[in-house]
Design a protein around this nucleic acid. Structure first.
Lengths: 362, 362
DNA sequence: CGTCATATGTTGCAGTCAACAACAAATCTC
DNA sequence: GAGATTTGTTGTTGACTGCAACATATGACG
């Protein structure tokens, strides 16, 4: 149970102030007073508090054009708290060091040999910076449960304790999240999906997963294994052992290039390519229908190579969705593509780290 | 934004104390001190505070058998805050008046003529007690969104503003929830599903809906329209306009009696009846597979007439589920039947009311 | 049956916090 | 340049929780 006393109140307010600045960027003390509903004097005390601890920086106010004394601007000091984020993929490992406030301070990508262990690549790519960071978060494409990757089509893992293995390889603790949920968090917090109250992010890598963010919070229990929704009972055998999984039925498409080739061919009048795209869109739409009925999102983002598929086959996706969901669920559903692109998972993973940091302050 | 100051701390602690007693029943001040992590003197102040406002009752301590001064027992005063809960069904309306602490003070059921408006029946059955209650909550089988019933197979409503209509009929405000989610809340809070972190309750009435409770909190966005998961694209036409919905494919079974008859017939060697049960179980299992993949529950309860179906056709349900979900998702999934029976929706609806009452105290 | 150990309620005190009001500072308007 | 306006600063006040000392109620033990 949480510690109590009046100090708790102070901690809560300090954390709330820092969170406000981290999420909404630099603000004046006057704006903070409004946003947090606290008194001017209290905001002043909190701000100097956090400035002394090095988390914030106060710059003397510039005139806003309107009357009155200009308010001092308060902003996060990025290097005051950094989070190391990595995204593990089948053939590469990506790394970003993100500072408080959301600024990306470093960024690297490293290819991966077929037989190399990604954990070693993480150790190399993060180098010394992982130790400096206050939190380290790894995004893994698949079903993650308490640091353990229960299932990952892309990496071929089942039951691998990624948290422990990363710690062994790098010498520090890691938080493990799934790529789709991370990307959903990223698009919600730093993309343009902030209005969504139930955001479903579809991640197309070697496997298909989805992440759900409800009112800005990652859905407990991790990602949705979109690729293992059964769209055709008794259909093609999937690597997971089930029959008729979406992933198995759509196997013809597994990478962005496949879609690009097919789109180009379809544009040149290749009827077979057009048909492949149409059927893939239809399969996706059907699986999506079940997920939409079960979760009721108000926004869906097509990420990874699903972005290309959606852009090439929006019509079949939409019509299959229309055939498998109730009108009311469709009526407030927006289908879009993400704005952070390949950065989404890294940014979202970092946000998961910052959320932990701020929670710990309370 | 919430009011601030040290008074907020007091309000939070007061609410926490009341919630603790409401949820866990009578406790001694010593136990409360342990549970809330507050000081003895603080607990004392809070308790006398709430005793003076009439919410609590303190009875002088009885000896526990161990040494030391006996601790005073603290318990909720049921009549201090009552919630009126109704469940609206196609052919009946049920009512319960629930007191603080969860005690059911009154209970009534009333049949409903085919052409009668349930709202009028609610006005009659609640009578004067609805006005006395601090909150009134109506459980409706279907997709509820901000007081509006977007879709209800059972009641044949689409877009009906139940909240407004109930207020017009009874003269007081009503909170509207969906029956399945209410039942899920009920089974979690007052049934024996309290250990579940993700509880999926399946409600079989005239339509099929499901409710999800995550860590004791109702899933935002209301119920899952289980009956409108498409299990057979291009299949039988459903009343909702889609093709191949679970509800349409299972239409042969729509009431408890249907199942009971079929089970009896199957027990007497009726192969056709056995086959009907098997196929119904299979269809249900398939739809459930998609929902499980999309939401990842750790416990599923079969409520309403689905209870009978599950008891009669557990094997096909389980095998269809096994064919449509990943092993990891199945491995920690328990399938059971509810313990509150027909009371679940009413009790859960009342809990939604109490949650609002306690939230308002903070 | 009385004393001691144990656990708990009660009371007064100290530390902390946020709100408030009065004042000082910085800018705009006329 | 004077007044209006907005904001930062400072000292005061009311409220809350934790703490320690004391009072109270029980069991254990001789």
């Amino acid at each position: 149970m949480a510690r109590t006393g009046t100090e708790e109140l102070r901690r809560r307010n300090r954390a709330a102030l820092l969170e406000q600045l981290h999420r909404h960027g630099p603000q004046t003390r006057a704006e903070l007073t409004e946003a947090l509903g606290l008194n001017r004097s209290t905001i002043g005390a909190l701000a100097t508090d956090l400035a002394e601890s090095g988390h914030l920086q106060e710059t003397t106010g510039r005139s806003t054009g309107s009357a009155g004394r200009p308010s001092t601007l308060v902003e996060c000091v990025p290097k005051a708290a950094t989070v190391a984020a990595v995204e593990i993929r089948a053939r590469s490992v990506r790394f970003a060091l993100v500072g408080l406030g959301g600024e990306v301070l470093e960024r690297t990508e490293s290819g991966l040999d077929e037989d190399a262990d990604p954990m070693d690549a993480v150790a190399v790519i993060t180098g010394g910076t992982a130790a400096e960071a206050i939190e380290a978060v790894a995004a893994v494409p698949g079903l993650v449960d308490a640091g353990v990757v229960a299932h990952s089509t892309e990496l071929g893992w089942a039951g691998r304790d990624a948290s422990a293995d990363l710690e062994a390889a790098t010498g520090r603790e890691w938080r493990v999240v799934d790529t789709a949920t991370a990307a959903a968090v990223g698009e919600w917090s730093r993309g343009d999906a902030h209005e969504s109250t139930k955001l479903l992010y579809l991640h197309g890598g070697r496997g298909l997963t989805a992440g759900l963010v409800i009112e800005g919070r990652a859905q407990r229990g991790g990602s949705i294994q979109l690729g293992h929704i059964v769209v055709k009972p008794g259909g093609l055998e999937c690597a997971c052992g089930l029959l008729g999984c979406l992933e198995a039925e759509m196997e013809a498409f597994a990478y962005t290039e496949d879609i690009e080739h097919a789109t180009a061919a379809a544009g040149l009048g290749d009827a077979a390519a057009r048909d492949r795209l149409r059927r893939a869109g239809q399969d996706l739409g059907r699986a999506l229908g079940a997920v939409v009925t079960a979760t009721g999102p108000d926004e869906i983002l097509f990420g990874g190579w699903l972005r290309e598929l959606y852009l090439s086959a929006a019509a079949p996706v939409r019509s299959a969705l229309a055939e498998t969901t109730l009108p009311h669920l469709r009526s407030k559903l927006r289908l879009r593509t993400p704005v952070l692109g390949e950065e989404g998972p890294l940014i979202g993973a970092a946000e998961a780290g910052f959320a932990a940091v701020i929670d710990r302050m309370r």
